[in-house]
């Protein structure tokens, strides 16, 4: 039974994965451009060509080219004057914006 369940779930995931990935990328870009709740848009402070942002307060992400882990911990804990957004965003939102920035920075 368990195998059938896994098989069924696997099938569902296999079909749905592309849509989920697209949605996650969209979410990450959306947060970057619009912010969420108490968190302002990343674009206000950061330059990222994929997002068309020209913020100059924080590092130019196209030059910094951070990996996912670096973005995730920076968003969660803050860096210097960059506030911590660990309470303003859900883990899923932080993951989404981290994946998005890491995948497009420098391109």
């Amino acid at each position: 039974m368990a195998c059938i369940r896994r098989g069924l779930l696997g099938g569902v995931i296999a079909i749905a994965l592309p849509a989920v990935q697209v949605a996650a990328e969209d979410l990450g870009k959306q947060i970057f451009l619009e912010g969420s709740g108490d968190m302002p848009a990343c674009a206000v402070c950061h330059m990222l060509s994929d997002a068309g942002s020209e913020g100059e307060i924080g590092p130019n992400l196209d030059k910094l080219m951070p990996d996912e882990a670096r973005v995730r911990i920076a968003v969660h804990d803050g860096v210097g004057v960059m506030p911590a957004f660990g309470e303003a965003l859900t883990e899923a939102q932080i993951d989404a914006v981290a994946r998005y920035v890491a995948s497009v920075a420098g391109q």
């Binding site: 302002p40 206000v44 402070c45 913020g55 100059e56 307060i57 960059m82």
Partner: peptide
């Protein structure tokens, strides 16, 4: 200078 769109207290030195 702090750009519009963010609370100055959030990033000012």
């Amino acid at each position: 200078s702090i750009p519009d769109g963010i609370d100055p207290l959030s990033v000012m030195v």
